[in-house]
Amino acid sequence: EETGVRVELAEEDDGEKIAIKLWLRIEDIKKLKGKYKDNEAIEFSFDLERDVPEDVAQEMVESGYVCEGDHKTMAKAIKDRVSLIKRK
């Protein structure tokens, strides 16, 4: 499903790190509610043992990086990427 958002690794995952750096990349602004630039990327750290995707997305909303209306879309994108990383 195309959401307009993609999360990718910002650094090589060696399988050892607990906290990883990720990029939340805006790919299609028409599919989102907030005002973003095409190909805008937000770099953030995610602790694989402690962080919760919904909470991280909420922090982005509170910091003004993400529109409240896009919270669920961002949280799902983060959750999907993190579950792929954890499965390795």
Rank of each mutant, 00 (worst) to 15 (best):
K76G: 05
D28G: 07
E59Y: 08
T3S: 15
K79P: 00
R50L: 02
V56D: 02
A77P: 02
K17L: 05
R50A: 08
V66N: 03
P53C: 04
R6D: 04
K35P: 11
A57R: 02
K17Q: 13
D28H: 07
T73E: 08
D51Y: 01
E54W: 06
F44Q: 09
D47K: 06
D13T: 06
D47A: 00
F44S: 01
L32I: 04
K76Q: 13
V56P: 00
G69F: 09
G4Y: 04
D28I: 03
I85W: 04
E54K: 00
G69T: 13
G69K: 15
E49V: 06
G64W: 01
Y65C: 10
V52D: 14
I29S: 15
E59P: 03
K37S: 11
G34I: 02
A57D: 01
R87H: 07
A10V: 10
W23K: 15
M60E: 01
R87Q: 11
K21S: 03
E68Y: 06
A10H: 08
G34R: 00
A75Y: 00
A19T: 14
M60T: 00
R81G: 11
I42W: 14
N39M: 10
A10M: 07
Q58T: 12
S83Y: 03
A19D: 11
F44P: 00
L84A: 13
L22I: 06
E54T: 03
E27W: 07
V66D: 01
V82C: 02
G69A: 15
L24M: 06
G15V: 05
A19F: 09
V56I: 12
E40I: 09
L84M: 12
E62W: 05
E59G: 11
A10S: 08
K21L: 00
R50P: 05
E49L: 09
L9K: 00
E27Y: 13
A57W: 01
V66H: 01
I85D: 04
V82Y: 02
I18N: 14
A75L: 09
L24N: 07
I26S: 12
V52F: 07
K79V: 02
R50H: 13
D14Y: 08
A57L: 04
V7G: 00
I78D: 00
G15L: 05
V7K: 04
L32S: 07
G69M: 11
D14S: 09
R6V: 04
D28F: 01
E43T: 08
K35Y: 06
R25V: 14
A10P: 04
H71G: 10
I78C: 01
D47I: 01
F46C: 01
L24D: 08
N39A: 09
F46L: 02
L48V: 10
T73N: 06
D14F: 05
V52T: 15
G64A: 02
H71K: 15
K33Q: 11
G4W: 01
E40D: 11
D13R: 06
D80E: 14
C67E: 11
Q58R: 13
H71F: 14
K21T: 03
S45G: 07
E59K: 13
G15S: 09
Q58P: 00
V82E: 03
I85H: 05
E16L: 07
E8H: 02
Y65A: 13
A75H: 00
F46H: 03
K79A: 14
Y36M: 07
A19P: 10
K17H: 09
M74I: 15
D47E: 05
K37A: 11
T73Y: 09
S83K: 12
Q58L: 10
A41N: 10
T73R: 10
V7C: 13
Y65K: 15
K79T: 09
G15N: 11
I26N: 13
E62D: 15
E11Y: 00
E59L: 11
R25M: 09
K35I: 10
E16F: 07
E11D: 11
L32N: 07
F44D: 04
G69P: 07
E68M: 08
E68T: 05
Y65T: 12
S45K: 15
G69N: 11
A10R: 06
D13E: 12
E49Q: 09
K72R: 12
A10Q: 07
V52W: 05
L24H: 06
D70Q: 07
E40T: 15
G15R: 06
L22Q: 12
E43F: 07
E16N: 11
I85L: 12
D51F: 01
I18G: 15
D51A: 01
I26T: 12
D13V: 08
R81W: 07
I29Q: 14
S83F: 04
G64S: 01
R6K: 10
